[in-house]
Amino acid sequence: MAQTTTPATSIRDEDCSERRMVVTFLMSALESMCKELAKSKAEVACIAVYDTDVFVVGTERGRAFVNSRKDFQKDFVKYWKGRRWRSRGEV
């Protein structure tokens, strides 16, 4: 019986790719919810951070607001990276 081994970095890359796909799928679901909220005249923006990627969904005005505020996005990323490191005991 033949055995194949996969380098650890490849497994990690697959895991990261799978996680990124899950985040993308969940943001798509959030986008659908935002569209429903928009029907009742609500303005909504949802932000997700995965590694260095920032995902923004919501109503047109909500997305426009968040996308125009790069400083807000950077602060959001910085905040969550800090929380992640603290929760791991790395800080």
Rank of each mutant, 00 (worst) to 15 (best):
S10K: 11
F25S: 10
M33F: 09
Y79N: 03
E14S: 10
F72T: 05
V91A: 00
T59Q: 08
D13P: 00
S68R: 10
F25L: 07
M21D: 06
A42G: 02
A45Q: 05
K39Q: 13
K41R: 14
W80R: 01
T9C: 00
F55Q: 05
D15N: 15
Q73G: 10
M33L: 13
W85I: 01
E14C: 02
V22N: 07
D53G: 01
E18R: 03
L37F: 06
P7F: 02
T5H: 13
A2W: 11
C16E: 13
M27P: 11
F72M: 11
R19F: 03
A42N: 12
R69Q: 08
V44T: 15
N67C: 01
S32N: 08
R83V: 08
K78M: 01
A38W: 12
F25R: 14
S10P: 03
G62M: 15
L30S: 09
S68W: 02
E18S: 00
A29S: 05
E43Y: 12
C46L: 10
D15P: 08
A45Y: 00
T9P: 00
A45F: 01
E36P: 02
T5I: 10
S68N: 08
T59R: 04
T59Y: 01
I11K: 07
V44D: 04
F72S: 03
G62R: 15
T4P: 09
T52Q: 14
E43W: 12
K74P: 00
A38R: 15
T6E: 06
R86H: 03
V49G: 03
E60P: 04
D75M: 14
V22A: 09
V77K: 10
R63I: 07
D75A: 13
A38C: 09
R19W: 05
T24V: 10
E36V: 05
A64M: 14
L30H: 13
T59W: 00
K39E: 07
V44H: 14
A42S: 11
F72H: 02
A45G: 04
K39G: 11
A2H: 12
T24R: 11
T4I: 08
C16T: 08
L37V: 03
S68I: 04
S87H: 05
S28V: 09
R61A: 08
T9D: 08
C34S: 03
Q73C: 14
E90K: 15
G89V: 11
S32Y: 15
F72I: 06
R88N: 10
G82K: 12
S28Y: 07
